[in-house]
Design a protein around this nucleic acid. Sequence first.
DNA 1: CGCCCAATTGACAGAAATCAAACACAGTGG
DNA 2: CCACTGTGTTTGATTTCTGTCAATTGGGCG
Lengths: 228, 228
Amino acid sequence: MLRKVAPSTAIQIKQRVLRDGAAAEQPLLPGWAELLAAVPIKYSQNAEIFGDGQPAEYLYKVVDGAVRTFKVLSDGRRQITGFFLSGEFFGLETGNEHTLSAEAITNSKILSIKRSVLAVLAEHDKEIERRRLELAACELKRAQTHATVLILNAKERVAKFLLEMASRNPKGTKIELPMARLDIADYLGLTVETVSRVLGDLEAANIIARPTARHVVLRDRGKLSPTA
Amino acid sequence: MLRKVAPSTAIQIKQRVLRDGAAAEQPLLPGWAELLAAVPIKYSQNAEIFGDGQPAEYLYKVVDGAVRTFKVLSDGRRQITGFFLSGEFFGLETGNEHTLSAEAITNSKILSIKRSVLAVLAEHDKEIERRRLELAACELKRAQTHATVLILNAKERVAKFLLEMASRNPKGTKIELPMARLDIADYLGLTVETVSRVLGDLEAANIIARPTARHVVLRDRGKLSPTA
DNA sequence: CGCCCAATTGACAGAAATCAAACACAGTGG
DNA sequence: CCACTGTGTTTGATTTCTGTCAATTGGGCG
């Protein structure tokens, strides 16, 4: 099933121009804030948002829910390259085609921003250009961090993953995991069994607690990050 | 020992302005080609080019030789994040500080381009801006590819590495490896012994030949890339 | 309530790390 | 010129870790 096209972002945002001041030197063009005020689209659990090889027309923002981006190797193995939670952007591509696929992990609301619109606006709006660069930098850092995790052993990988999720979730030490163990495994280059075992070990060592399978509480952050 | 400061790129390039046409709409400012015509600096084997945490003042290009970029974890493990051969750029940072270290693998000639100069020029020179984005995109792709390699098993990692090196070296199937086994191991998240063993296995299977330790000949590319 | 899928746990096999030793080669000094 | 030394590479034996296969448990939803 092909993805439905987003309601024309350009038209919608024009209606909002000139409220919410910010960068209003170009009264007829929307700024960053206006782009983000468009109406999000709903994707149900496991729905494809875009696929590897498809033309990359949009940049996306998770308004609510969670998203995974991944690559499927020719032998069927899946590598998850990133998880994206509420407020985070994904789908940024440098070329004209997606080099990854993206799916909703849970029922999600996703905002799409047309790249062609963004490109035009960036020509005259320094903030938009800055934001775009910032996103690219963020993606690069994300990929580098991911690579760094993948040279570690299983326990260290899971620990890093938990710390990463904790740092993104606002509520301190309580982590809510929207994704299944298989997703975590494919992200960390491990098997579900290993992920499960490591979590079991961490709980046994009183480093974490697991009220439910999808909720983790950090009890001893120090012991999770010996390799800071 | 602290790094010697590069001879002022800005001054040197001014002397060359207006030869080699290209983007000469700004007669007093050098273009991309002029930036690359500056005099390279020599670094001897294992010399540090920049260190993690230092201010990132320059963008670098390998004129001759080879460079490794890496991160040292708090427990001493080293992750090599990339190898850079003649003609390739490295040291691109999004922030103001380096997040990696870089060393010459062999005696090398390295060209440095001051970021501040680049930033000023990019304001008015579309080509320079385009080149900068292109480099950032290249870095991102590199990091993503690296992450993809790290979820594979030892044999696959080494195979991917050989193919990567082969694709960068012009001479088809003959690969010259400027780096030691330890470098390869740290790049692939393996140990030297494992790298050595896999190479031995590949040679025994007649997939590669090794005239010397630092030279590899691809005999059967197909068997190296089953997981294209 | 029962089904189904996700998660866990256990037993075992296979892969890679570790520890140890032999070997190759380049540069040095006699 | 050759022996010597030091580093880099390879090979071997063993241990540790992770994957695989299989069975069991648990939780959410119809």
